[in-house]
Amino acid sequence: MASESRNSHEDSAVPQKDSDQIQTPPPKFVVVKVFDSKRELTLHRLSSSTPFTCGRCNKDKTAKLVATYRNHWNDLRCNACYGELLLKD
């Protein structure tokens, strides 16, 4: 087996590939604005409130703001977790 990068997000449905490679969002996520990346998170404003499951708190959310972790659309963060992660050193 090839060694996998450390992934504390065991609930991710799709294995992550190169962390530097930007993925395109699935069709249900219509991005209207992309904010500057902070650490490994990029915040996106969507055209409408869209349902997703946060990869950190595992809660089902519906929101216009969603953050990708390491540019992966299969590993999303809700706005609350995004804020908490940026507060940590």
Rank of each mutant, 00 (worst) to 15 (best):
P15L: 05
F35M: 06
N71A: 02
C78I: 01
K17V: 06
G55C: 13
V14P: 00
T68Y: 00
I22N: 06
P27L: 04
H72T: 07
H72A: 08
K28V: 08
R77Q: 11
Q16H: 09
Y82S: 00
T53P: 09
V66D: 04
V14W: 05
V14E: 09
W73Q: 03
N74L: 00
P51I: 08
Q16Y: 13
Y69I: 09
L87E: 08
N58R: 13
R6P: 10
T62L: 10
K28I: 03
M1T: 15
D89V: 01
C81V: 00
V14K: 05
N74H: 02
K59N: 15
L65M: 13
V31R: 07
R56S: 15
D36E: 14
W73G: 02
R39G: 03
A80Y: 06
R70E: 09
P25W: 02
I22R: 06
M1Y: 15
D20F: 04
Y82H: 12
F29N: 03
I22E: 13
D36L: 11
D60F: 00
L87K: 05
S12P: 07
K88S: 11
F35P: 00
W73F: 08
L85R: 08
K61G: 01
A13M: 13
V31P: 02
V32F: 07
L43W: 07
K33F: 10
S47N: 09
K64T: 13
V31G: 07
T53C: 14
C54V: 09
S8L: 06
R39A: 14
L87N: 10
K17W: 06
N58A: 13
C81P: 03
Y82I: 01
P27M: 00
